[in-house]
Amino acid sequence: MTRDRIARTSLYLVLVAGLLVVVGPFLWMLLSSFKTEAEIRSVPPTWWPSTWSPANYRDLFDRLDFPQYFANSAIVAVLVTAGNLLFCSLLGYALAKLDFPGRKALFLVVLGMLMVPGMVTFVPQFVLVSNMGLANSYAGLVLPFLAGPFGVFLMRQFLLAIPDDLIEAARVDGAGEWRIFWRVVLPLCKPALATLGILTFLSSWNNFLWPLVVATTDDKYTLPVALALYAIGQNRIYYGLLLAGAVVVVLPVLIVFLALQRHFMRGIATTGLK
């Protein structure tokens, strides 16, 4: 009995220590974003702000065009998410439930794409988007991410588990293929669509390399790009501004994540990908 208690207590201690190592830095970021520039640079560092000041957050608007970056991130993420939900569920349905010539080959090619490193497609995609005249445009930021292999895999796996009888019954009732898809199949897919939607939105929101290269003027920067360029390129870095910016990048994600974490966990557990 007492041995069990010792074991459980030590387990708690280890887990809490782990949690501190993982979450502690985030708390420190949040607290420090309210400190003055001088206090942030002070040695040794402080945990609790000696005076709470919203100046860093005000600077996001005064020194940077923050609402614009925020809007750009949101526009791109919403378009990418909507595209993936539509295109991936269409193809996922076809792969799982319809028999058509070339189905197996198509699935293998799409699946194989998951193994191709981003750097292989990166340069030709840039050449392609530039030659289409889409550099520094929303279209250029969105188009290469509209059809992701991950979403097809997720939707197909989910749809395979839905009984054929439901679809067959609708067919017997004389419903056309499109009608079946919109009225019967999609409503059944809600849990998978929720998972795919959240994961896609997140990866688009956090996407860094592509917008860094494609967005070349201030008015097309996404949040991570603006923050990184500000952090890397300046002579005099205002750390308080940087920390406040990081909080604003993380906060929407954190809210979405906390509200919908069950979908996350299920999506990752079933597909194994983030």
Binding site: W205, N206, P224, L227, A228, A231, A246, V253, F257, F264
Partner: peptide, 10 residues
């Protein structure tokens, strides 16, 4: 789920 840029700042 956190942006790499925010993680870098931290």
């Amino acid at each position: 789920v956190t942006s790499i840029v925010a993680i870098a700042v931290i």
